[in-house]
């Protein structure tokens, strides 16, 4: 967990009753038992996924579904990667996610800057236009947007997969909040130093708002990588499937090769596992942004 938060973690203070050492040990034991039980609930499904990916599907069922490997097929991951097309799907996902994150960063930073530092006519109306998009998630506009990209000839293309996500109200809000914390004096000083709007934005404001921008990029990455409904409808060719959509195709494999889908799911989860391991603090901050601090 986030190390900076863990410092503040505290044990609920024991009541001022005279607790015997034995009782304290029992309480501690009770908490450990609870923690282990909860961990099992969370880990068991993951354990089953790994077990079932490596075990030979029919042999596993015939063996009476034991909690151990049955006739392991260690080549299943390379089969999922090459034969089952996870490599290609990974490439599509990486490209789409990179395009969406880059574009969201640029559009959000620019718009947030305008709302935080500039005065212009219809500012309130423009802000309402941004807020209004929160009422129009992709699930609502899906049918019409599919028709739009079909009309444009963008089915099965990078544009088609990414365009509806090149800007997001959430990014504009979060980064605007970050910019509002930048002292006005700095803006004035920068003007005196001859910085234009863009110079101030990228040399002063963006570096100062780094934590907020970092949190937002985490959210941006997660939502772009995990997308399902849009890429499902914006593609009808196997070679344009993202990893999430490829998983659906794999689950329709014959039962005797179904473990290729399970191996595919492990491959699809790896980038997020890496993110969680190396960027745990940023990820926690990103996920709690807007939740705890409001």
């Amino acid at each position: 967990m986030a190390t900076d938060q863990a410092e503040n973690a505290h044990v609920p203070v024991e009541p001022v009753r005279s607790d015997s050492g034995l009782r304290r040990h029992l309480v501690t034991f009770g908490w450990y038992a609870t923690l282990v039980a909860l961990a099992l609930v969370i880990l068991f499904p993951i354990y089953m996924l790994i077990l079932r990916a490596i075990s030979s599907p029919i042999a596993y069922i015939n063996a009476g579904q034991p909690l151990r490997l049955v006739e392991p097929e260690w080549d299943i991951f390379s089969r999922a990667w090459t034969d089952a097309g996870m490599a290609r799907a990974m490439l599509v996902s990486v490209v789409i996610t990179a395009v969406i994150m880059t574009a969201q960063f640029i559009t959000s930073v620019l718009a947030a800057y305008a709302f935080a530092f500039m005065e212009f006519p219809l500012k309130k109306l423009m802000f309402a236009v941004v807020i209004g998009t929160l009422l129009l998630p992709i699930e609502v506009t899906l049918i019409a947007n599919v028709r739009t990209i079909r009309d444009l000839g963008w089915l099965n293309s990078v544009q088609g997969l990414s365009f509806p996500f090149l800007a997001t109200a959430l990014g504009i809000f979060l980064i605007r909040q970050g910019f509002m914390a930048v002292p006005r004096d700095l803006r004035d000083a920068a003007t005196l130093d001859g910085f234009g709007h863009l110079g101030f934005l990228f040399r002063v404001a963006v570096p100062l708002a780094k934590p907020v921008i970092g949190s937002f990029l985490v959210i941006s990455f997660l939502s772009a990588w995990n997308q399902y409904v849009w890429p499902r409808n914006a593609t009808d060719s196997g070679s344009w499937q993202t990893v999430q959509i490829a998983l659906r195709t794999l689950t329709t494999t014959r039962i005797d090769e179904i473990n290729v889908a399970f191996a595919g799911a492990i491959i699809a989860a790896l980038p997020l596992v890496v993110l969680l391991v190396f960027f745990q603090r940023q990820m926690v901050r990103g996920l709690t942004a807007g939740a705890v601090k409001g």
Partner: peptide, 27 residues
């Protein structure tokens, strides 16, 4: 709470954020 190894439990408990809906569905 402050117990030995609590970090490991915290990591396990947060671990499902590393799954997408599609991955969780395959699981």
């Amino acid at each position: 709470r402050k117990l030995k190894g609590i970090r490991a439990f915290q990591t396990v408990f947060s671990s499902t954020v590393a799954t997408s809906v599609a991955v969780a569905s395959v699981i």
